[in-house]
Write a protein that binds this DNA or RNA. Structure first.
Lengths: 136, 136
DNA sequence: GCTTGACCTGGAGTGCACTCCAGCACCTAG
DNA sequence: CTAGGTGCTGGAGTGCACTCCAGGTCAAGC
């Protein structure tokens, strides 16, 4: 698999893949006679997992730490687990934040709909304890 | 309330508050004799809501669009509602992504713990369909 | 009256995470 | 055998979202 194929399969750009390699996020692949990168299928799982870490808010520094430990092998098992546990905690916090916000947004959207319908808004709703925002 | 007090109350830095004012995220406050910004309590609710939008992944451009519509008043009610509905959709997607990731992380953490305990890992678990990542 | 700390402005600098580019090599299809 | 597409490298450029700084003003306490 050449870099263009991998890019297509994993949804990253060729430039991003080379950038990830440069900073050490993905291992240096073998090269063919012409010096072109040749990837193994296994890279797909790793890139996918990196994408999930990123998509759930892990910055490049922590992904890099994780990648480096992964290269170190079995001796870094504990370190990797701890990093994932830290990240899990952050994910839990984010989940709560998003869940709360969903409520706030639902309330506000209802409020806006009422306003659009020309209804006078009940002040006790405007200052609804659930959102504490009313019309902003 | 001067800018330092506001900064303390809302958890943003003085610089950030001035930056937000410069780009139009928060309205220009009145000034006292000495030219210092004087804020009304009401700004707190707005800044808090902006913070929630930010903390749930809304970029500065959309926050700015929202802020500008807010200044326009009643005529922008529909626009604001639509923007919030768009954001709500994104929040829902993020919630699902985070929920999935929580499962993946839980599985991996269990796997790492087993490895740390020196247990041979059941290959059917290593390639567990839930995570499709195994040990990374 | 003077010091000290908070505030002011305009503009430069930072860190993250890519993204793009020039100029070149290589490989494959026609 | 050549044209077009893909790949290579090193390095510059981008957009976001602040953050910091110099050089100054102002107000309140001693």
């Amino acid at each position: 698999m050449l870099i263009g194929d991998l890019a297509q399969k994993c949804g990253l750009s060729v430039d991003t893949l080379r950038y990830y390699e440069k900073i050490g996020l993905i291992p240096k692949p073998l090269r063919d006679q012409g010096g072109r990168r040749v990837y193994d299928q296994a890279i797909l799982r790793w890139v996918d997992f990196l994408g999930r870490l990123k998509a759930t808010g892990m910055g490049i520094k922590d992904r890099l730490r994780y990648a480096q430990m992964r290269v170190e092998g079995a001796s870094s098992l504990t370190g990797r687990r701890e990093l994932l546990e830290e990240h899990r905690d952050k994910v839990r916090v984010d989940l709560e934040r998003l869940t709360d916000m969903l409520t706030v947004l639902d309330d506000k959207i209802i409020l806006y709909r009422k306003m659009e319908a020309g209804q006078a808004v009940d002040p006790s709703f405007e200052n609804c304890a659930r959102t504490e925002h009313g019309l902003q």
